[in-house]
Design a binder for these strands. Structure first.
Lengths: 110, 110
DNA sequence: ATTATAGGTAAGCAATCACTTACCTGTCAA
DNA sequence: TTGACAGGTAAGTGATTGCTTACCTATAAT
């Protein structure tokens, strides 16, 4: 296996905090400096740094320095474990796309 | 709005613990008694009860009594907030189903 | 060189978590 | 009626969270 199950859990913990989800949401648009991100929250800048650290440890964001700034960017692939887990529950939605997928799969079998 | 944003967050917290995700997974098959659920875990039965309480408070499971048993069952709709949040990230997967959906949407527009 | 800016790290603290053991209530069985 | 069993609740505890203020380093601007 490529990724330890231990590590995957961290992703669920990382997204369990509203502020961290909002940080990820901000990064869907573009990469951002810490100051830019912090401006969207009430909490102190160190608190933002600490949240970013958790996202970084979970692999959900990456960082690169730009002068004296650090720009954070989204690493969406790391949401894979969440996506995979949620996929088990697709059966419970009346999802016309799922049915389409199943038909396609059947089509490929035959 | 039907559900307070406060409450939605609880769902993310509820699924942040591996054991609780596994409990939900068990309930995708069928409803189960606490003893049945507890048998799948190393932890004490009270610990299992406490996890079930968290899932119950989050609305992710429901309970009904059956003699001296309590059967827990999945309430998959409560995963909606997770599903909706994840939907923002669909754009980042090379998802042929998504493209299909977009084409369908386009088709409906015209 | 000096000063301002970006942002990480340390230490401290109250609140919450995850677990345990002990105990209690309600139901079924003899 | 007397156990046995299902399972929730209480209390206690160590670990972890989430935040703060204070401090430090590195880059940029004057």
């Amino acid at each position: 296996m490529a990724v330890s199950p231990e590590r995957e859990s961290d992703v669920f913990v990382a997204i369990s905090h509203r502020a961290r989800r909002e940080m990820l949401d901000l990064l869907t648009e573009t990469e951002r400096s810490v100051g830019d991100i912090a401006a969207h929250f009430e909490m102190s800048r160190p608190a933002v740094s600490q949240h970013l650290r958790i996202l970084l440890d979970a692999g959900l964001v990456g960082e690169h320095r730009h002068g004296r700034e650090r720009r954070y960017h989204l690493v969406p692939e790391r949401l894979g474990p969440v996506r995979e887990w949620m996929a088990h529950y697709e059966q419970f939605w009346d999802n016309h796309l799922l049915r389409l997928q199943q038909q396609l799969a059947k089509g490929e079998e035959e």
